[in-house]
């Protein structure tokens, strides 16, 4: 579970996130919506312990990101907006490395990597160098590295950016299959994607929370679109 409470963050005197509070419970995908530059990535980075909030607190599975950063890191899998890779390693070596440093027992690494390669449809690319992967395969590898230690919380920053519609659909299917029993927070500005993928959306604009809403079966994309455009004032 993720709990963001009255969090603010400034860069060079400009407040990028302002008094932001929301919760993401386990067992569903939470969409973190907002226009470009609204502070989504900054918030995700604060949850992932990459940035410290200036004010307020962020806790993941009950652990404070400032006081218990290491405990938080054990609970999370993070996919940044632009996935950095070690181009000289093969897909298998890349996943094995992250499995080891994220505490997967040495004896279980091989089995865990092999199972993830299968789940993420990367079996055929296992021996390929990371530097030779296409965008779609890179994203699959990105989610595989985020899942490699079976984390309780998944943080995905614009995961379908740059994917073609077919790849994006495959990615959504993959995400739904792995999201059960986990807390998944997906940042995006794609309303259609969020409406089909998420059970709840958190919408921010200029670093402020504008809306926190359950997405029900009858929630239409137009409804979300109106919320997005009006900044939550309907």
């Amino acid at each position: 579970m993720i709990e963001v409470s009255h969090v603010s963050k400034s860069f060079g005197g400009q407040e990028v996130v302002q008094d932001l509070s929301f919760k993401a419970e386990s067992g569903g995908i939470v969409g973190f919506l907002g226009p470009n530059g609204s502070g989504k990535s900054t918030t995700l980075k604060m949850i992932a312990t990459l940035l410290s909030p200036d004010r307020g607190t962020v806790s993941v599975c009950g652990f404070d990101t400032k006081k218990n950063a290491r405990k938080v890191r054990e609970q999370i899998g993070y996919l940044p907006e632009h996935l950095p890779l070690y181009p000289e390693l093969t897909v298998e070596e890349f996943l094995s490395f992250f499995a080891r440093i994220r505490g997967v027992p040495a004896r279980a690494v091989r089995a865990q990597v092999s199972s993830l390669l299968h789940v993420c449809h990367l079996d055929d690319a296992a021996k390929k160098l990371c530097g030779h992967l296409s965008k779609g395969f890179r994203q699959r590898l990105g989610i595989a590295q985020a899942l490699v230690h079976d984390p309780k919380v998944l943080l995905l920053d614009e995961p379908t950016n740059g994917l073609d519609p077919e790849q994006a659909q495959e990615f959504r299917k993959l995400l739904i299959s792995v999201a059960q029993e986990k807390t998944v927070l997906v940042s995006s500005h794609l309303l259609h994607e969020m409406s089909t993928l998420c059970s709840k959306i958190v919408m921010i604009r200029a670093g402020k929370l504008v809306c926190e809403k359950e997405v029900l079966e009858h929630t239409r994309v137009e409804e979300l679109e109106n919320l997005f455009v009006s900044g939550g004032q309907l």
Binding site: A48, T49, R73, P80, P84, Y86, F98, I101, R102
Partner: peptide, 17 residues
């Protein structure tokens, strides 16, 4: 430079290790 430092930073790996 490549940004892989981010992936290392979000792992529970200690800086000493």
């Amino acid at each position: 430079r490549h940004g892989t430092f981010v992936l290392l930073s979000v792992s529970p790996l200690t800086t000493t290790s």
